[in-house]
C-alpha cells in the first residue's frame, strides 16, 4: 500500500511537470475561480463590517426637560431596559453632555466662546437607546412618545435620524441580496469552468489510461495519480490566489486609501488568512478530485 502511494504520488508529480502547458492552464483557471470566490468572501465580510459599524452608530436619543430629576430618568431607563428588542440604554447627564460637546468642538473657538457667554449649561440630559435591529427604532420612538413619562420629555430625535435609518435598512437588504446573488453566480460559473478544465486534462490522458489498463494496472493505481494531481492543482492555485488577493488589497489600499471599505480589507485578509487559505486549497483539491473522478469513470468502465 505504501509502495502504491509512493509510486502514484511520484507519477502525479511527473505528470504535472511533463504536461507543462496543460498544468499551467488548469492551474490558471482554478486560480481565477478561487480568486473570484475569495474576493467575494472578503468583500462580503468588509461590507458587513461597514454596515455593522454604521448600524452601531444609529440610535434613538431621548432628551429630558431641564427640570426632570435624575431619579425620574433612572426610572425611565429601567423601564426601557425591560424590552427585549432594546440592546442598551445609556444615561448621558447634563455635565457629560457638556463635556462631550466641548470635546467635539475643541477646534471651534467661536462656539466655545459663545458657550461661555451663556454662563450656564444649556444642554439636556438624555438617554441613548440602541436596538438589536434597526427596524425596531420606529416602534421604540412611538412607544416613548405615547408613554406616561412623555410629559417629561423635551424631544426624541428619532425623526431626525429616520431617513438615514430607513435608507440604511434598504441599503443593507439590497446589498446582501445582490451580494449573495452575484456571489453564487460567479461561484457557480467558476466551478463549472474549473470542472471542465479538469475533464479536458483527463481527456488528454485517455489513451494513456487505456494502456495502463492493458498492462494490468488496477483502477486504484490509475486513479491515484490523477487524484494527487488534483490536490497539487488545488494547493498551488490556493497559494497563487492568496498572493494575488494580497497584492490587490495592497494596491487598492495605496490608490484608494480614503474609502472606508478599503481600510477594513487588509485586516479581514490577515484576520482570516488561514481560513481563506485552507478553504481555497480544500475547494481547489475537492474540485480536482471530483472532476477527475467523474471524467475517469468513462475510461475505466466502472
Amino acid at each position: 500500500m505504501f509502495l502504491t502511494i509512493h509510486r502514484t504520488f511520484k507519477e502525479a508529480f511527473k505528470n504535472f511537470t511533463r504536461n507543462g502547458w496543460l498544468s499551467i492552464a488548469t492551474v490558471s483557471i482554478l486560480t481565477m475561480s478561487l480568486f473570484v470566490i475569495s474576493v467575494f468572501f472578503v468583500v462580503t465580510l468588509a461590507v458587513d463590517n461597514v454596515l455593522n459599524g454604521v448600524q452601531e452608530k444609529v440610535n434613538v436619543s431621548i432628551y429630558f426637560k431641564p427640570d426632570v430629576s435624575e431619579e425620574k430618568i433612572d426610572e425611565v431607563k429601567s423601564a426601557l431596559e425591560k424590552f427585549e428588542e432594546i440592546k442598551s440604554v445609556d444615561y448621558i447627564s447634563k455635565e457629560k453632555a457638556l463635556e462631550d460637546f466641548k470635546r467635539n468642538n475643541a477646534t471651534e473657538p467661536v462656539i466655545l466662546a459663545s458657550l461661555d457667554e451663556i454662563g450656564e449649561n444649556p444642554l439636556l440630559a438624555s438617554l441613548i437607546v440602541k436596538a438589536y435591529d434597526v427596524n425596531k427604532y420606529q416602534l421604540i420612538s412611538e412607544y416613548v412618545e405615547k408613554a406616561e413619562f412623555s410629559s417629561d420629555i423635551s424631544r426624541v430625535n428619532y425623526g431626525k435620524n429616520k431617513d438615514i435609518i430607513d435608507k440604511l435598512n434598504g441599503f443593507i437588504a439590497v446589498t446582501r441580496k445582490v451580494g449573495i446573488g452575484l456571489g453564487s453566480l460567479f461561484t457557480l460559473i467558476s466551478l463549472l469552468v474549473t470542472f471542465n478544465a479538469i475533464r479536458i486534462t483527463i481527456y488528454t490522458h485517455k489513451s494513456e489510461i487505456e494502456i495502463m489498463r492493458l498492462v494490468g494496472a488496477s483502477n486504484m493505481f490509475i486513479r491515484l495519480p490523477f487524484i494527487f494531481e488534483g490536490v497539487l492543482y488545488g494547493i498551488l492555485s490556493g497559494m497563487i490566489s492568496m498572493l494575488i488577493l494580497f497584492t490587490s488589497i495592497k494596491l487598492i489600499a495605496i490608490y484608494a486609501p480614503s474609502i472606508s471599505l478599503v481600510s477594513s480589507l487588509m485586516s479581514i485578509y490577515l484576520g482570516n488568512f488561514w481560513i481563506l487559505f485552507a478553504g481555497q486549497v480544500a475547494l481547489g483539491s475537492l474540485l480536482g478530485i471530483i472532476g477527475s473522478f467523474i471524467a475517469m469513470r468513462k475510461y475505466l468502465k466502472v
Binding site: L214, A217, V302
Partner: peptide
C-alpha cells in the same frame, strides 16, 4: 470481476 481483471492482464 473488475477486481480480478488487472491480475488477469498481468
Amino acid at each position: 470481476s473488475k477486481r480480478k481483471l488487472p491480475y488477469h492482464r498481468r
